[in-house]
């Protein structure tokens, strides 16, 4: 019961999901629409609630035990509380019953998203540029032909996207400028290798999914009882 019921449900819903692409009847399409856009979305809300509960419990425990960096757990909990309060009470676009404007100063959840979350996330991604450049400086060495190809193609692609690339190769005939070679690398060898890798990955994913659907792969059921 503890294994067979979930497994049976999974196979049943798997077949149901599979048929979505093959049964164009309006009744079936309407059924799948309701299932996808209402039923499964409502179920997923509880997964989010569980995740948020885990996050809160983790930080509360860290504060209680005075674990490493426990003081910053207050930052997460307080910002979570404030953002949730403003978001729920103030409405997504600031049309809720909680006032989200003082004079010309707006603090609705969309403004918080664009003024707090967007700078934070884009700066974090931008930070990676420095680490990638530093890692490349330390590890990129043209020790053999293959390493040389890796280094060379990375260099040409980077050069092709900055004005200095045009400045250095501008005297060459058309088709041999850094930008042209960079485009060629992206469109020919890069496309070929990426396509092969993507095909391999997709076939691997398909194999795993068929194993899950047929009940061969059961690790998602977790261990124990």
């Amino acid at each position: 019961m503890r294994v067979k019921l979930p497994l049976g449900l999974m196979i049943f819903f798997g077949i149901l999901g599979f048929t979505d692409s093959f049964v164009p009847h309006p009744w079936a399409q309407n059924f799948h629409g309701v299932l996808r856009n209402k039923v499964l979305i409502v179920i997923s809300v509880f997964a989010l609630a569980l995740g948020i509960g885990n996050l809160i419990s983790h930080h509360v425990t860290r504060i209680k035990r005075k674990g490493p960096n426990w003081i910053h757990s207050y930052t997460t909990l307080i910002s979570l509380g404030i953002a949730t309060l403003i978001g729920i009470m103030g409405g997504v676009t600031g049309n809720g019953w909680l006032p989200t404007r003082v004079g010309g100063f707006k603090y609705d959840i969309q403004t918080i998203y664009f003024k707090v979350l967007v700078p934070l996330q884009s700066t974090m991604f931008a930070l990676l540029a420095f680490f990638m450049a530093s890692a490349a400086y330390r590890s990129f060495r043209a020790r053999n032909l293959l390493a040389g190809l890796l280094l060379g193609s990375a260099f040409v692609v980077m050069l092709g996207q900055v004005p200095i690339g045009e400045l250095l190769t501008g005297f060459l005939p058309p088709g041999f400028h850094a930008a042209d070679i960079s485009t060629w690398i992206m469109q020919v060898p890069n496309t070929a290798s990426k396509r092969a890798i993507e095909l391999g990955l997709t076939l691997g994913v398909l194999g795993t999914m068929l194993k899950i659907l047929t009940g061969i792969e059961r690790s998602w059921l977790g261990g124990g009882r």
Binding site: P6, L16, F18, S21, E198, V205, M209, L213
Partner: peptide, 29 residues
């Protein structure tokens, strides 16, 4: 009753796994 958590997971995984198989063929392969 901890095992009951497998039910919503099974519904979710099953449906989206079933949907992904034809989608992977028509969308990627």
């Amino acid at each position: 009753y901890a095992w009951l958590v497998r039910i919503p997971m099974a519904i979710f995984m099953g449906y989206y796994t079933g949907q992904t198989v034809p989608a992977a063929f028509t969308g990627v392969v």
